[in-house]
């Protein structure tokens, strides 16, 4: 029984399928999320696949403050996902509402509507930071302390030298 539990946990850590949802972001974080999925960052190394339907996904990657209009949709998509499910708030706005906090049309951060497992600050977040956040979230499944406020590792947050050809 213990062994089966271990194998299942292992498989969950090794195969996080994500779904990306824009809850009202300015599109900057979305572009960074897309960039993180390109061959350059190659998240399939960690088993990450982008899925179109919430039924297949394990991790809901949300970007942006929750507007009043998107709130019901966000809850619906969250409830369509199969257990066990995790939510990652990417970007400052998703973490806290950002500069839009208190705006008449804004509900607040993602955690004002649905439970959030990891926060990745940044405006916009770098792809490295997103990958680091997701990896930290999955590491927490293995018994590591909960990644509340998982901040990007110092090396990931450092700006990459500009102008280097890739």
């Amino acid at each position: 029984m213990e062994l089966i539990k271990k194998i299942v946990t292992w498989s969950r850590i090794k195969s996080p399928w994500i779904i990306h949802f824009n809850t009202g972001a300015c599109n900057a974080c979305d572009i960074e999320v897309i960039a993180a999925l390109t061959p350059r960052y190659d998240v399939e190394r960690f088993g990450v696949l982008l899925k179109g339907t919430p039924r297949h996904a394990d991790v809901l990657v949300c970007s942006g403050p929750v507007t009043r209009q998107i709130k019901d949709r966000l809850v619906r998509i969250y409830e369509q996902m199969a257990e066990p499910k995790f939510v990652v708030a990417t970007g400052t706005c998703a973490c806290s509402g950002g500069v839009f906090n208190g705006c008449y049309c804004v509900e607040g951060g993602i955690d004002s509507v649905i439970p959030v497992s990891a926060y990745i600050p940044g405006c916009p977040v770098r792809p490295e930071a997103i990958i680091d956040g997701v990896v930290k979230l999955l590491g927490s499944l293995d018994g590591d302390p909960a990644p509340q406020g998982a901040v990007p590792a110092p090396d990931a947050a450092e700006p990459v030298k500009q102008g280097t050809a890739v």
């Binding site: 299942v8 498989s11 190659d42 190394r45 088993g47 394990d58």
Partner: peptide, 21 residues
Amino acid sequence: HRVGPPWFQPLADFIKLVSKE
């Protein structure tokens, strides 16, 4: 020009899906 998934990836996907709701 990517590294690609490790060898156990399809197996991990399968076990994860089986154990999901």
